[in-house]
Amino acid sequence: MAKSAFLKSSIAKKYWMALTGLFLCLFLVGHLLGNLQLLMGNNTEAALQFNKYALFMTTNPAVKLLSYLTYISIIFHAVDGIYLAIQNKKARPVAYAMSNPSKNSSFSSRNMAVLGTVVLIFIATHMVNFWYKMKFTDQIPLQTISVDNGMGGKQEFIITADYGQSKFMPKEQLDGKNLVQVGNKIYITKPIKVEFAEGYKDLHKVTYEFFKSKAKLFNVIPNEGLVFTLFYVLSMAFLGFHLWHGFQSAFQSLGINGKFTPAIKVFGKAFSVIVPILFAIIPIYIHFISK
């Protein structure tokens, strides 16, 4: 009987919001740990480590499974959240002439839908800028290293992988006719496409250039790198407020409210402050501090 209502009932919706939300908190931790490698500076070794990590994250089957879970969680959390917000608006057709909600609830708890929407917009732009480019285009060049050629000049080599060790390949060989780049693989002779070396998409460089860019955004706003940095930092503030309520709220939704609740609340608040700040430090470092 009522068991069929398990997906649509008001309480079931809470469970799903809580489970997907907590999974996304785990995702945040993993993503943050990876991103923090960007703080190692703008040099070949740091870039290679980050790019190797990025290649692993886009190809490892276990990571792929987790990433699909993450996509599903984001979509479900957003759709369910919007649905909840619409339903909840309908539950009070006539608004109060005078309402004093700050006396009984936190700003975050009352504005989860708005905060979440901003975070969702951020995620969309973030994925277009990095995730989509990395996974579905060849817009990201392979990482190169510049080596002294002994004649007073410099020669650029593509860093390639071979049994876990990095090798080099002269970049000028990649002429688009005999040697072509497809994804992060280098192929020989266009029609035949014989793969003979694997490079690393230079996501590190793309990220640094993104936040350091002096170009005009939409050909109007100068210094787009600064705009991207500020937008990122602001989005992290919204994420922080969203987590301020969301983290501990998830436990209440799952029926966990007892002797551990004070500890969960403290941990949740620390999480909602520390995680977004650590994320925000990265573009600030790249834009203002790094070479």
């Binding site: 009932s9 809470k14 936190s106 709220s249």
Partner: peptide, 16 residues
Amino acid sequence: VRQMDEEGFGNCTNTG
């Protein structure tokens, strides 16, 4: 809970 949902009450978001 089924009756509560049918009556048109909103969904709890733990504002407290």
